[in-house]
Computed example of a mutant assay.
Amino acid sequence: MQSVDLGQLDLGQVIYPVREMEPCVAFYRDVVGLQLKFRDGDRWAAFRAGAATFALAPGAGAAGAGATAAFRVADLAAFAAALAARSPSPVPAIARGAHELTLTLADPSGNAVILYQPLAKPAG
């Protein structure tokens, strides 16, 4: 059996199941601020997410069945302020963890979305 170097694998995309495409496309484009790069009606929507693609596809039943996308931002407080100006819903408070600041949202289909800013590592 040939060995595969897993260090050569790059995440290509994350796909979220959605109940209704249009409100979710609007949420990720207009509220979260991702750039829509491709849309195929109600069958598929793909957004630029750094080197990867964040995509939406029709899904049966409940969303959020196991996967959560986390988007790294340079300044979470500034991002949260801009988000509050774009969001029709109140923006939750930023939580401080041991290694990062996080802001957790839910899209119109109930999928969790985490925005995070790593905390500076202590010297030494």
Rank of each mutant, 00 (worst) to 15 (best):
M1L: 12
V4A: 13
L9Y: 14
L9I: 15
D10S: 14
G12M: 04
Q13W: 08
Q13H: 15
P17E: 01
P17R: 04
R19S: 11
E20W: 03
E20K: 14
E20S: 11
M21T: 11
M21L: 10
C24A: 13
C24W: 06
C24P: 10
C24E: 10
A26K: 13
A26I: 06
D30C: 10
V31L: 07
L34T: 11
L34A: 09
Q35R: 15
L36H: 02
K37T: 12
F38A: 08
R39M: 04
R39G: 02
D40S: 13
G41R: 10
A46E: 15
F47S: 03
F47L: 03
R48I: 07
R48W: 03
G50I: 05
A51Q: 12
A52C: 02
F54K: 00
L56R: 05
P58M: 11
P58F: 08
A60L: 13
A60T: 15
A62M: 11
A63I: 08
A63K: 09
A63W: 06
A67F: 13
R72F: 07
A77K: 04
A78R: 13
A78P: 08
A78Q: 14
A81V: 06
A82V: 04
L83R: 08
L83S: 09
A84P: 05
R86K: 14
P88R: 06
P92I: 09
A93G: 12
I94K: 03
I94F: 06
A95S: 15
R96A: 15
R96M: 09
H99D: 12
T102K: 11
L103V: 08
T104Q: 09
D107A: 02
G110T: 01
G110A: 01
G110L: 00
L115I: 02
L115P: 00
L115R: 00
Y116K: 06
